[in-house]
């Protein structure tokens, strides 16, 4: 099938502002949007710039806005995008070039929630025990691949770049609800900040955007309740 790719372009060394590039590609209905972007980059315009790596929805490199909605380019099939496929960089993060944005502010927020297990009681031999139910409690949020699709789909984040954002809250949730962890209260304090979890307005764009199908808003809601209980 023939599809028109409308791609938001910006070269920091040449352009003063972004512009739209249009390209025709011939693709299979089962091809990914990433395949179509590669067709443009490899055979039509080598200057098109994007990040990608694993190409099957695990590494989280190629989150972008596809037809007005955040998604991984390697997880959207061409048969689902129609005759025209509009591709833009993620919103709310500084634009570097074409579809590449600066991820550093995003990772800074991730680092702010102490995303590591805190527990010094290590058994002499073997593993710490954890019941399947306790493991299940935080299963959903272990799936996060830090692609930033959720955070950059959030109107609260667009309006306020200091908002810690859904991804960081999801990462905090993964530890707060892990019964092996001992720093839940500290993390809850961090998230109780004015730019913490209370900026969430339950818009649910993050749930729709998450390529790992994490129930992001539920995780945020659980953190809100935990703050009410613990602090």
């Amino acid at each position: 099938m023939r599809v028109k790719m409308r791609i938001r372009r910006f070269n920091p060394e040449k352009d003063s502002k972004p512009w739209w590039g249009e390209y025709e590609v011939e693709v299979e209905p089962t091809d990914r949007v990433l395949d179509a972007l590669h067709q443009v980059k490899w055979y039509q315009d080598g200057t098109l710039t994007l990040r990608r790596s694993c190409a099957h929805g695990i590494c989280g490199s190629d989150a972008m806005v596809i037809n007005g909605r955040n998604a991984l380019a390697c997880k959207v099939l061409m048969r689902d995008v129609g005759k025209v496929c509009v591709v833009e960089p993620l919103r709310g993060l500084p634009l570097i070039k074409d579809l590449v944005v600066d991820m550093e502010p995003f990772f800074a927020k991730y680092r702010a929630v102490m995303p590591w297990l805190v527990n010094d009681e290590i058994p002499d031999h073997g593993e710490r025990l954890q019941s399947p139910e306790a493991r299940e409690r935080y299963d959903d949020t272990t799936k996060c691949i830090l692609c930033a699709a959720c955070t950059t789909s959030c109107p609260s984040f667009w309006a306020n770049e200091h908002y810690i954002g859904p991804a960081a809250i999801v990462q905090a949730h993964r530890f707060i609800f892990d019964d092996r962890d001992r720093a839940a209260v500290e993390r809850l304090r961090i998230l109780n900040d004015r730019d913490g979890v209370w900026r969430c307005r339950t818009v649910f764009n993050c749930v729709q955007a998450c390529p790992r199908e994490i129930d992001v808003t539920k995780a945020i809601g659980e953190v809100k309740l935990a703050i009410l209980e613990a602090l």
């Binding site: 593993e127 025990l129 399947p132 272990t142």
Partner: peptide
């Protein structure tokens, strides 16, 4: 902290 899947005994 690796979240391994667990047996019924944990």
């Amino acid at each position: 902290g690796l979240p391994f899947s667990r047996t019924p005994e944990g």
